[in-house]
């Protein structure tokens, strides 16, 4: 069965080829989507700054909140996953992707009850982001604070 062994080794190479064929097109689509979300965020930000006379820093939280609400609604209506099929990381990397991972997990388990369903499963996927965010931020801040105190 020498030929079959050959096929076995060919397989991973082919798979790589299959994926590498698409990366240019995929990253272009992601670029468009990510760029659009950023531009939209910038527009809302400017609107909040001018119409509610907020400072730039104060307007960040309402701007992100607006994006989060929009992506939550899109997730609920079932459109967000359709967008993600086309735009890939374009809708995963922005903060809207994090909202989607929480909302979708919560929706999936709503039939299992408010506490043991929605409550217990909301962070099933997004929890990793929270944990690594907190741990890495803690470590980074501690190290920086330590360095700063030593320098002083």
């Amino acid at each position: 069965m020498k030929t079959i062994d050959k096929l076995k080794t060919e397989y991973p190479k082919e798979r790589k080829l299959l994926i590498s064929n698409q990366w240019l097109q995929k990253s272009f689509l992601a670029f468009i989507a990510g760029g659009f979300i950023s531009m939209f965020g910038q527009w809302i930000w400017n609107v909040y700054i001018t119409s509610f006379s907020l400072t730039e820093k104060e307007a960040i939280a309402p701007m992100l909140a607006t994006l989060i609400v929009i992506s939550g609604l899109l997730t609920g209506l079932g459109w967000y996953k359709k967008l993600s099929r086309i735009f890939g990381a374009g809708v995963i990397v922005p903060i809207t992707g994090f909202t989607n991972s929480l909302a979708s997990a919560a929706m999936e388990y709503r039939h299992e009850g408010l506490v043991s369903g929605i409550g217990a499963n909301m962070f099933r996927i997004g929890g990793a982001v929270l944990i690594y965010g907190v741990v890495s931020a803690y470590v980074v801040s501690m190290v920086r604070l330590l360095v700063e105190t030593i320098i002083q």
Binding site: L18, N100, M107
Partner: peptide
């Protein structure tokens, strides 16, 4: 999907395969 993969409304971009 619920048992083996991700929630159904979760973002996913699957390969052609």
């Amino acid at each position: 999907e619920k048992q083996f993969r991700l929630p159904i409304e979760h973002v996913k971009q699957r390969p052609k395969t």
